[in-house]
Design a protein around this nucleic acid. Structure first.
Length: 220
DNA sequence: TGACCGATGAAT
DNA sequence: TTCATCGGTCAT
């Protein structure tokens, strides 16, 4: 790994059976879970399932890479310094809402607002591993190489058809939710966040988490 | 109102 | 490594 100073954190086995799809709703992460701090949520949703029921299909993927963005002291965060703008105000809500924003005029970044009200933290989902609805994901992306379908923050959102319509929606809904994976076994790598070199104070903090050796980790 | 830019992707 | 990219954000 080229990341500076990664640490290895012990995790637990990932298993997935197609027959589980209908049971995932039962294992939905609660709103209470998203009231925990960003680092906790970012680490603990690794290996979990992201489920989207759109008009046509159910899309399911395993969350394999996340970043945590802390509150007003994190100069990489949109909420740094307590700044409130029309774009980021959702971050000040209680955890459990979706924060989507457009970047480079064409891509959508997907975050989950976490922590308590007025503690503006978020968990950024950087990469997922496709499990179900793969054909639709490929179509949405316009690529056939599976590795390129969801292995980046704006790749997977395109695969899932995420757009600004999702801004402010609940991540604890029937349409979109995170389902807990009760059988995790993998190592978690802690590393520096990507694309935040401008953040002089916090750029070196190890707030990025990913499943070690997973083929869908984003590359830079 | 418009200058500026980005928590990127894809090609090289 | 570099470069295309463009809607939206936000300071004015």
């Amino acid at each position: 790994m080229t990341e500076g100073n990664p640490e290895y954190v012990r995790g637990a086995p990932v298993r997935y059976k197609k027959s589980m799809a209908l049971e995932l709703n039962r294992d939905k992460r609660s709103q209470r879970f998203f009231r925990y701090p960003a680092e906790y949520v970012a680490r603990n949703i690794l290996g979990d399932f992201l489920v989207l029921n759109n008009k046509k299909n159910t899309l399911i993927a395993r969350i394999v890479e996340t970043e945590s963005y802390l509150g007003v002291d994190d100069d990489a965060s949109h909420s740094f310094g307590g700044k409130v703008t029309p774009r980021n105000k959702i971050m000040y809500e209680e955890g459990g809402l979706i924060y989507v924003y457009l970047i480079y005029g064409k891509f959508y970044c997907f975050n989950i607002v976490v922590s308590k009200k007025n503690v503006p933290e978020a968990v950024f989902i950087r990469a997922v591993e496709p499990l179900e609805g793969i054909d639709e994901m490929k179509r949405n992306r316009g690529v056939s190489d599976l590795k390129k379908v969801t292995s980046g923050p704006c790749r997977w959102t395109q695969a899932f058809g995420i757009n600004k319509q999702f801004l402010g929606r609940s991540i604890v809904s029937d349409e979109i939710f995170v389902a807990r994976n009760f059988s995790k076994k993998f190592d978690i790598v802690k590393a520096k966040r990507i694309g935040v070199e401008y953040a002089t104070n916090s750029k070196d903090m190890l707030l990025r988490f990913y499943i070690r050796d997973n083929p869908f980790i984003s590359k830079r």
